[in-house]
Amino acid sequence: MQITELAKLTEAQVRCGNGLMHTEILYAAASDLMSDVLTIHHDGMVLLTGLANMQTIRTAEMSDIHCVVLLRNKKATPEMVELAAEHNIILLESPFTMFKACGVLFNAGVQSVY
């Protein structure tokens, strides 16, 4: 699935990475715990999270995660947007709960990492 479709399905706003919206993703991980995210090695993965801080973006950078969706109406700070842009990470903000976002993306064919 392209990020463009993912953003549409989760009613998300794009905070940065507009030029990268055709990137393909295969998997999704949903977690507020970055310690868990750092144990995942799948490529082509989107991170769904309610944790909106600098370490969310740093974790995505270290794990080669190209798209982060902030859920539950959480907003990215300007510093988060700047860091995400520097590392070509697409940063989205969705009003959906984690449960709803997972359900919508699972139904659309996005796979779990295990």
């Binding site: 715990l33 310690s35 370490q55």
Partner: peptide, 11 residues
């Protein structure tokens, strides 16, 4: 901050 789950050193 999303850490402190006792996963760091094992990872």
């Amino acid at each position: 901050m999303g850490f402190g789950a006792g996963m760091g050193l094992p990872n």
